[in-house]
Amino acid sequence: MRRLEIAGAWMLGVLWILPLAWAVWSAIHPASVSQTFEPFAPLTLRNFAAAWRMAPFGAYMANTVVLVSMVLAAQLLLCTPAAFAFARLRFPGRDVLFALVLLQLMIAPDVLMVENYVTIGYVHLVDSLLGIALPYLGSAFGIFLLRQAFRSVPRDLDDAARLEGLSLFGRIWRVYMPLARPVYIAYGLVLVSFHWNNFLWPLVITNSVGTRPITVGLAMFSTTDQGTDWSIITAATLMSSAPLIVAFLLFQRQFVQSFMRARAGE
């Protein structure tokens, strides 16, 4: 019984890693041998070089990096004070407002893409990185997560900091944010992987090389720019996800724990 379970777990694991393993195999072999699965076939990096030349992946990658950094910085800057106020300050309308914020957990901006496109057009930001980012800058997920973290900070610590003469922002900076560090890491990792992978809204709102993030660029590349040279497509595919995969392998433990912690914030 026990052996059967282990075998089952392993079969599932192999099944789950197989598509990715194949992609790696195909990307590091010349097209002529990538289908034969000879264990000692010669390795090559040419597919990556070819893919890199065939489409402006450098520009796409740069767009994604700028986009993700922008969303990350803006969300931290906006959600931290909002989360603190919802957690620790008393002001009229607070609970109603918080309920309205939570509504966004259910209605993601991409569901409302038609109307959001009109709004972005109205402020003349169609086909700009800011236009991609704007709908995501106020994040219910971030506010919710940080509010939970701030609420668990002991009141005594806060009072002590106040007696020391720290201002409101001093208390947030010196007391609340350091204590919520694990939550910030969790939130940051979830945010980076979400926006690195986001596709539909960027597809709708961009139409030039200067603004397309890597997901949209990759989709255009694999549907239009070439025939069906699988080695090159997989090389491009791996290249576009490489930074995330590498980050994931390096920070595997933090990654998994951060997703768990994001959940524990519930």
């Binding site: 194949w22 992609a23 996800s241 995330l244």
Partner: peptide, 14 residues
């Protein structure tokens, strides 16, 4: 867990 980290577009290509 790894498939979760990949962009859906990459997954679709594979």
């Amino acid at each position: 867990f790894t498939p979760t980290v990949l962009p859906m577009i990459a997954v679709a290509n594979i």
